[in-house]
Design a binder for these strands. Structure first.
Lengths: 113, 113
DNA sequence: ACCGACAAGTAGCCTAGCTACGTATGAAGG
DNA sequence: CCTTCATACGTAGCTAGGCTACTTGTCGGT
């Protein structure tokens, strides 16, 4: 999948991933990849700055820890983050419904086997 | 709706609108607004450059005409444009399914009154 | 005479994701 | 022992593409 399609929706994805529990950056990347069956394979240059943005915005808080001699920065959703997620989710549904109205109907229902 | 969410999906929208028949720029803007119940109200500074892009890419062709003393540039889908639309549609469905997997499930079905 | 709808367009800005780097540790393999 | 790969963090600079703000022009109504 073209990653740049994400424009404007990445924050929502990150918040959604963190909704299930705190994770560190690298694990977030893996979670996105896993839960999307590999179609979302985002580079660190995308994720790390995005997490900083979310932290600056107060939607997540981070804390350092060392696991197996490796430094980890773990991110956790704040209340503000949870509220933001709700808003983003709402926004996503409106957006996808609207675009779907233009692109949806004509898709062949399925190309069965 | 936040318009910047469109990033990367505008071309598909334009092709989809033109799929139903040739239109001139201004009419395209109105069609988008009408078919989205007003939630897609895009400025000319977004539409006109995008149409030029599509024309450069060979997905549409334009022709000038004068109606009531007003110059109109009417855009029409090419075969290449139709193929591109099919691809974009496919891409949209993958994209929305993937993002939906993260943002979809938890939306309250409705907040009744 | 003037204003609003119709109709087209451009220059320059800004957001935000991507490319391509750089750093460092631990485990595995030769 | 040394290399390589997975883990883990990060940044600088590029770029795409939609937006703001503006310009030009006709026509119809007041």
């Amino acid at each position: 999948m073209k990653a740049q399609s994400l424009h404007g929706h990445l924050d929502a994805l990150l918040l959604a991933v963190l909704e299930r529990g705190a994770l560190h950056g690298y694990a977030i990347i893996e979670a996105l990849r896993a839960r999307s069956d590999g179609s979302l394979d985002l580079p660190t240059g995308t994720i790390y700055p995005a997490l900083r943005r979310l932290e600056r915005a107060g939607h997540v808080v981070s804390s350092w820890s060392t696991v197996n001699g490796r430094e980890r920065r773990t991110y956790e959703l704040t209340d503000s983050g949870r509220r933001a997620l709700a808003v983003q989710r709402q926004g996503w549904h409106e957006f996808s419904a609207t675009v779907g109205r233009f692109l949806g109907p004509d898709t062949p229902p399925a190309t069965p086997v």
